[in-house]
Design a protein around this nucleic acid. Structure first.
Lengths: 326, 326
DNA sequence: ATGAAAGCGCTAACAT
DNA sequence: ATGTTAGCGCTTTCAT
């Protein structure tokens, strides 16, 4: 049997104050004497009172819920879960809940959550360079933050990894470790339409410019990277390998062929995870931390700023990748 | 600038009917003449009207939101995302949204979403055998479904993989392929406290009983499984390997050491993914589908049944694992 | 088959 | 510093 939760009316009665006083204690939008506050808080505690979300939302137009538009999970995506977990926890800290909106719903889904008023703000993940969803959110007028930076967003904020810097870091490392070429896999050439890939390649190319480093943009399947790595490496030369997507998979595939122990190869991984837990063979692989937790937390905090600070303008925050083995 | 969404009042005015008629058209809780219904629906379309969620929740005590309590993401757990995505999509089909509740919040979090009325039902993932959260949900009176079956749940439904059958399947396969022993890794012996592991081992043991198959419950780190596999395999004998947790990781580790191509080892994987996309070396590994999408969808449908069917009782649904290579 | 009206539990403007 | 009161936009009883 479900028993009805207590209302602010019940709290008021028990504390011997008016119902509005209870509300003011909760919202803090009016000074309350210490004695009264104390009695009200005791009553709240005693009854286990929580303000009814529907009523609060109806009245205040603020639902304390942030919509999170998640991309479809392509099976292997543990990465996504890291973002979602971190976002949910950080939102919690600020008193917000996270409502999932599937990418499948598209712009229509955004319209729905906006019109029904379930969400008072949105976080969008994995946008294309020109994404119809951005236009829809802007039109709705809801504050929003994107994780990943689309080409144009005059109205909302964005938080993302600094992919240009990532590109420069990879090239620097390859050069420092005397590599003759850098094999970029995960079909980066074909994915230039993605904003992050395009920025990454800009970084790579600008840093490699004027050096002897030969760039190879692999176009094949990640599973075949090991084979390709062998093919391209001439005797006495050294090839660095890096994948902006599917990196861990290729890493395993490489390890499987023994390529990692071969001094003519230098694998660089984009992950914050401890790879030695998977296999001791991976312990020595240099890693760059993509800082997903930090990015998630920043996205939430940026949204909170947009929500709470009067007249706060949108802004773009780029997080620096970090070496994990220096 | 955010413009105010239209209300049912606006729709009523445009359609030339009373506000309550609009509501009846929407809820379908009263017969409406074809002509009236048509005019109302046109007005709804024209205005892009969506009923205000706060008002609806306040009045009807039903929020159309299902709370999903997700476990902490253990770094690279892509598995979780499959569940979450499938749950969100299936919930959508029935008109429900999914609100994330982090496991971190614990029983306290459940109490919060119940008292505030944000959720009208709950899905709980990854419960212990005796989990305090179950008691809290039962106490709250909310309908709920668990994914994974705790030992006692008199009030809620559960959906889970049939782990006993899984155990039997693994043993059968090992025997069929002339293995002398079965090495179970991921520390199953130490995890008997987990309901799924305990059921799995029951299945394994009952099926192995009376056969010559030697069972080895590995207690070490997954990364060391390859080494262990070599140690335990005597000349001319054959060892089957299976991990109820961390299976894919061990798989990669095994591949890395070349153990997969060795005929004295038989690896069995618990995954629905196409492993050949990771490495051609993994293409031949027999797989058992843990059916996470089906389990997720069943969980949602079970919850909907609990919510909508008068006097529907709780029940336990076990989904059969399936061979993916027969 | 439709309309009028009450009221869900809050917040905030208007009292004192 | 506190109390009184008017809605927010719906669902649903009670009328017709």
């Amino acid at each position: 049997m479900r028993k009805k939760p207590p209302t602010s009316q019940d709290v008021a009665r028990l504390a011997g104050v008016s119902q509005s006083t209870v509300s003011y204690v909760l919202t803090g939008s009016r000074p309350i004497s210490g004695a009264t506050r104390k009695r009200v808080e005791e009553a709240i505690d005693k009854l286990g009172y929580h303000p009814n979300s529907g009523a609060r939302t109806l009245r205040s137009q603020r639902s304390n819920v942030i919509g999170l538009m998640v991309p479809e999970a392509d099976s292997d995506d543990g990465v996504l879960m890291v973002f979602i977990g971190a976002i949910a926890r950080e939102a919690q800290r600020f008193g917000y809940d996270i409502l999932l909106v599937t990418a499948q719903e598209g712009a229509q889904g955004i319209r729905r959550v906006v019109r029904t008023g379930v969400c008072e703000a949105l976080i969008l993940m994995e946008l294309g360079r020109h994404d119809e969803r951005v236009a829809t959110v802007i039109e709705s007028g809801l504050p929003f933050v994107t994780i990943g930076k689309p080409d144009e967003l005059p109205q909302g904020s964005a938080v993302d990894l600094d992919f240009e810097m990532l590109g420069r870091m990879v090239v620097q490392r390859a050069l420092r470790q005397d590599c003759d070429r850098l094999l970029l896999f995960g079909a980066p050439g074909q994915k230039r339409h993605r904003n992050d890939v395009s920025r990454f390649l800009n970084g790579v190319e600008s840093q490699a410019d004027g050096t002897d480093l030969q760039l190879l943009l692999d176009a094949g399947a990640v599973a075949d990277v090991p084979e390709r790595a062998v093919q391209v490496t001439a005797a006495g030369e050294r090839t660095a390998l890096f994948g902006i997507t599917g990196a861990t998979q290729a890493l395993f595939a490489l390890a499987a062929t023994g390529a990692l122990t071969d001094p003519s190869r230098l694998m660089i991984a984009l992950t914050g995870d401890d790879l030695s837990a998977v296999s001791p063979l991976l312990a020595a692989v240099p890693r760059i931390d993509p800082r997903r937790v930090e990015i998630s937390e920043l996205a939430v905090r940026e949204l909170v700023r947009l929500l709470r600070e009067e007249g706060a303008g949108p802004r773009v925050t780029l997080v620096e990748p970090r070496w994990l083995d220096d």
